[in-house]
Amino acid sequence: MKKKSKRFFKLVILLCLAVLFANFHITYNAEQKLYDTVKSIPKNRVGLVLGAGKYVGNSKHVNLYYKYRLEAAFLLYKNKKIDIILISGDNSTTDYDEPSTFKSDLIKLGVPANKIVLDYAGFRTLDSVVRAKAVFGLESFTIISQRFHNERAIYLAENQNLKVIGFNAKDIKGRYGLRTKLREYLARSKAIIDVIINKQPKFLGPKINI
């Protein structure tokens, strides 16, 4: 029993180290590619907004990750740092449509409908960045999300030979934000595994040049 306990303990230690390494590697890789202000960020023709649900669960409380990504995308467009907004999100059921919700709210803010392109098959961050290249024909763009998410998205995009930068939407503090960041540790480990095994998106489909 003691030998089994020691082996189990060693395995746990190794897994923890692997998760910590994945987190450090992805954070370090994104250095010098992230921007917090409109003034400092270079212009790209297209900004890729990574999807999120508008509401928290089944409540009517607005998801702050959604709200701040929406505001960040509008800020870049208003200041002419992007010309086109590509919204990539989940539309897996008839009553859940992240891209269309973003589009509706961006139009209310003043973005013309013909400047917004929707990707309905951005089920995961991997899908969003791969489809940006494979479906929408992009080689470079600005990723718009919270910093922790941008770091992972940049890692995945660069492994597709894409030239990308990230614009950091306002982050979330408190218990809700902490829970999301803890899940991010595991998501980063999976991102590295996905790159190693060359994981592909759930759907591709016909090309849509923008």
Rank of each mutant, 00 (worst) to 15 (best):
Y35G: 04
M1Y: 09
V129W: 00
D105Y: 03
K199A: 13
K3S: 11
N23F: 07
N168T: 06
H25A: 13
A191N: 08
Y96V: 08
Y176A: 12
R147P: 02
V49E: 00
F74S: 06
D194C: 08
K2F: 10
N168W: 02
A113F: 06
F74T: 03
I85Q: 00
F148N: 01
K43T: 13
D97C: 07
P206V: 12
L138W: 01
D105H: 06
Y120V: 05
V49P: 00
A121C: 15
K4M: 11
K67L: 14
L86G: 01
N44E: 15
K170S: 10
L48M: 10
V129M: 06
G110Q: 07
D97Y: 03
G47K: 00
K190L: 13
T37C: 08
I154K: 00
R69C: 05
P99C: 09
T180S: 14
Y28Q: 13
R69M: 08
V195W: 05
D105S: 04
F102A: 01
V38Q: 03
Q146P: 03
Q146D: 05
K170V: 09
G47P: 00
S92M: 14
G53Q: 06
A187K: 04
V46C: 08
K108F: 05
G51M: 04
L126P: 00
E98R: 02
I196P: 06
L126Y: 02
V117Y: 10
L75R: 12
V12I: 14
I154Y: 01
H25Q: 14
Y155W: 13
L156H: 02
L86M: 13
F102D: 00
A73Y: 02
R188L: 06
N44L: 06
E184C: 07
I143W: 00
S145L: 05
R124T: 15
D97P: 01
G122P: 01
L156Y: 02
R175F: 11
D194S: 12
I172H: 04
N159A: 09
A157S: 11
Y35H: 10
L86T: 03
S59Y: 12
V62A: 07
K33E: 08
I84Q: 07
V117L: 15
N58G: 13
N91F: 08
L20D: 10
K54N: 06
K202R: 15
K39W: 07
L118M: 13
D83W: 03
K6G: 06
K43S: 14
H149C: 07
L20G: 11
F8M: 10
N159L: 08
N159Q: 13
V49W: 00
R188T: 04
S40N: 14
K133W: 09
E98G: 03
Q160M: 10
G47M: 02
Y65L: 08
V130I: 14
E31I: 07
I197M: 12
R45P: 05
F148T: 03
G205I: 09
N159I: 07
R131I: 03
